[in-house]
Design a binder for these strands. Structure first.
Lengths: 315, 315
DNA sequence: ATGAAAGCGCTAACAC
DNA sequence: GTGTTAGCGCTTTCAT
């Protein structure tokens, strides 16, 4: 355990004050070329690295940003998180990941313990369960991924899941399907009507004069949206023996699991059953047959923005 | 922007010294029940959250751990990172992700700037390019994911990729295949013989009296191991017109892309061509047909440890 | 059982 | 141009 090298050690070796060292490191104030050389040499010699904690305490800038997310196993979130991470690092920030399964106290700490210069929330529902944005003294910049109904006063990137699902179900209807299965979460959360996807599905059917039936709703718990779960639910569907010719899945992974279940029962895609995904992860185009899916921007929300599906709000 | 609430504010409101507040928060020293109540009430009233930077500066414990990884798009890494993240959070640590594409200076800072209590390295090759473990004053605990040849003095979780690839290629040989394509990186890095997988492939063939031919090596650059790349390379393979009956891919994602390419050319798996994966991500069992693959533990290295493939080293 | 005071390593007035 | 000094918010001896 080597003794910590401080600014003072450098200063002593270079025969200057610690302020001068600071000036050089932070590139402010005037320092003569001769002194700068000497200090730089001392820094190298001692292998000095400034202590970030001390600097943060003083400047009240931590250079850290935090991101609250659920999981990384879903390629959609993995891609989004990766994009944010790279962007953060490229801009000299450090990137910390939090789980969305935090309690009230943990959320409070995360916001107020002074560790972060900014906060990105990918799981608005879980966040709002614990934090009231109205009561939030806005001393830490936040940005939220918003796929819920209603509005928020936190700056956000808005995704219109309802319109997207509406669109993709319409696509199925246009292709002559009428018995369309919905595979995804059917929960409603906290008055925010979490299930925008379900709403889109219902709207689309209703507009076409079809009354949605519970027999066609296959519930997957929030955050359990994995291939395995899609597989299991479609197994159930087949056992139930209701007539169907299409499945609208809430994400690509579940669609892939669904395809597997169908094929095990000799049902061919798309000949016997049509199936649509959601998210457009890279894999969607790589399986056989390709998955019909709907794309969301994962890196550059605003530049690729789709008028109706996506909207960026900044206060 | 609310003014920062400090320990002193709490102390004043409760009519005690800041030392006492500290004692209560850190649960050491004796405090009378009556005072404790009063202080707790003041904390709640002011919505006080201790400043982590200040505490870290004093205690030299940051409660943060960092992980250096490449990307999250590959489900294998996503699962590993997720496991580490959850474990860290469950133990009261904060989890920060770094990219492996850092320069020497950035690596140095990461290790020495006092931000982290521990460091996990998932990309040993990139790390060792910039950091010499011999010269490392061991003042920050590190742990490394080790899939290279040779040894390291950093505590590590060792994966024997060579043995794993050997095993899976043997499986293909046992099933009567002899023209086996290798799909993966063929680069050799820094004397660490990065390509343990390729080595395993070669060993397996050689042991069976088959001399490996360059015609069967389809190179994928390190970290480009995506479905799309697998797809592209197998397209090339088909165009080349060399006879083959099996493909050993370096990971599951590339295998999936490869399957796609085959099917586009009317080649059926496994009837016409056998294909094997590597990593055993959840998806491997969900595509049709299922991918034959080899499993690596992604969360509990030691408990599920496989004698020959995996080894945990702790100094 | 509680408080006073020093100091973690750094930066930013303010002096010179 | 460069140095002196105060202080960020916290914990931890050391007194009392």
């Amino acid at each position: 355990m080597r003794k910590l090298v401080t600014k003072l050690d450098v200063a002593k070796l270079a025969g200057v004050s610690s302020t001068t060292v600071s000036r050089i490191l932070n590139d402010n104030g005037y320092v003569s070329e001769e002194v700068r050389k000497r200090v730089l040499k001392a820094i190298k010699e001692l292998d000095y690295v400034p202590n970030r904690m001390a600097r943060s305490l003083r400047t009240k800038k931590t250079g850290q940003i935090a991101c609250i997310t659920y999981g990384l196993k879903n390629a959609f979130y993995a891609e989004v998180v990766q994009g944010i991470k790279d962007e953060a690092l490229d801009n000299g920030y450090t990137f910390t990941i939090y789980s969305s399964k935090l309690d009230k106290q943990q959320y409070k700490q995360l916001i107020f313990d002074g560790s972060y210069d900014g906060l990105i929330i990918l799981t608005p529902l879980e966040f709002l369960e614990h934090v009231d944005p109205e009561k939030l003294p806005r001393n830490i910049p936040m940005s939220m991924y918003w796929d819920l109904a209603g509005k928020t006063n936190i700056p956000n990137v808005k995704i219109n899941l309802r319109a997207a699902m509406d669109k993709i179900v319409n696509h199925l209807l246009d292709n002559g399907h009428s018995n369309i299965v919905y595979l995804g979460s059917t929960e409603d959360g906290n008055g925010f009507h979490y299930n925008q996807r379900l709403k889109g599905y219902i709207k689309s059917l209703t507009n076409s004069g079809i009354s949605p039936s519970d027999d066609y709703l296959f519930h997957v718990p929030t955050w359990e949206d994995t291939p395995s779960y899609g597989y299991i639910k479609i197994k159930e569907l087949i056992k139930k023996n209701v007539p169907f010719t299409a499945i609208a899945a809430s994400n690509d992974l579940m669609a892939i699991g669904a395809m597997r279940a169908l094929s095990e029962h000799g049902l061919r895609v798309p000949n016997d059953v049509s199936i649509t995904g959601f998210d457009d992860i890279e894999l969607a185009g790589m399986i056989t047959p390709s998955l019909t899916t709907i794309s969301f921007p994962k890196k550059r929300y605003w530049s690729h923005s789709n008028e109706h599906i996506l909207e960026f709000t900044q206060k």
